[in-house]
Design a binder for these strands. Structure first.
Lengths: 159, 159
DNA sequence: CATGAAAGGGCCCATCC
DNA sequence: GGATGGGCCCTTTCATG
């Protein structure tokens, strides 16, 4: 991956509908080589997919809750089971295995507190969770799907 | 918004490259009305944008850190300043104002612990933060940009 | 008023240089 | 990496219930 690829990714992370010809123009390439680079990055899995991003408030999931879970079950099979349960809940949009005193952290999106309570009851009915604590977000100040590309590995033969 | 719109959104959240004709076929509509519905949802801001989603590991930001901030400055102007500082950091991909004992929570993506330390130093040099604590994720088990549409408001005249 | 059918223009993508 | 061309898809216009 070189500087041009990074520029292409920057543009596509911002707007995936941009025509290849225009991307090429912005990065100083003609259509074909630019298209080939994009194609390769898709094959390599650098570009995973192209998705529509919706307005959370307008689809009535304006409330984010961070749910911390502590457990005594520190084995792989339990994690897989937990993971499988979480997969069934579309309200859970992010799920992490943590280091430190919390074992798992998930981000849940719901319309309001009441809906969160419903979610919570459904969750604990599916799997036994020892210690769960919920932190409510009062507002989303920043949210982006665009990853920083400043750390991406640049091939040597690139000025 | 009716059931068909929800189906369209479900498809577009999964894959925004799907041709309108195919979407129409899947939801039981011909091309034009399907295209118009999508157009309208874009105008209404329900569909905010279409973006490329990249693989975090492959662009070398495989480590997620959740940073909790407590502060004594509970006024709007300070929040705006903080918000402005955060905007300058592409490593911060999410930023929330919280209720409870933590005031702000952000998700930061970096290549490794060392890069997080660099980020942390740069951050506290830009703004005075009283109480900051960092929690490292050992792994991302689930991440989706797709919001649940089960809560979306359905217009009455829809079976 | 919402849907469907058909036509034009633009873009993707393959081939060749 | 660049240029040309065919084919598909988006987008508009017109017709229909």
């Amino acid at each position: 991956m070189d500087k041009i690829d990074r520029k292409i990714l920057t543009l596509l992370q911002r707007d995936a509908t941009m025509p290849v010809a225009e991307i090429g123009r912005k990065v100083g390439l003609s259509t074909t080589p630019c298209w080939r680079r994009i194609q390769k990055m898709e094959e390599d899995g650098i570009i995973q997919r192209r998705v529509a991003v919706l307005d959370p408030v307008k689809v009535n999931v304006g409330v984010t809750v961070f749910v911390s879970v502590k457990t005594n079950e520190h084995n792989d099979s339990w994690m897989r089971k937990f993971s499988g349960v979480i997969d069934e809940f579309p309200e859970v949009v992010e799920f992490y295995r943590m280091s430190g005193d919390v074992d798992y952290l998930m981000r849940v999106v719901v319309p309001d507190i009441g809906a969160y309570d419903t979610f919570y009851k459904r969750l604990i009915s599916k799997i036994n969770l020892t210690d769960v604590s919920s932190a409510f977000a009062m507002g989303q100040i920043k949210y982006t799907t665009a990853l920083p590309l400043d750390f991406a590995i640049i091939s040597d033969d690139d000025k």
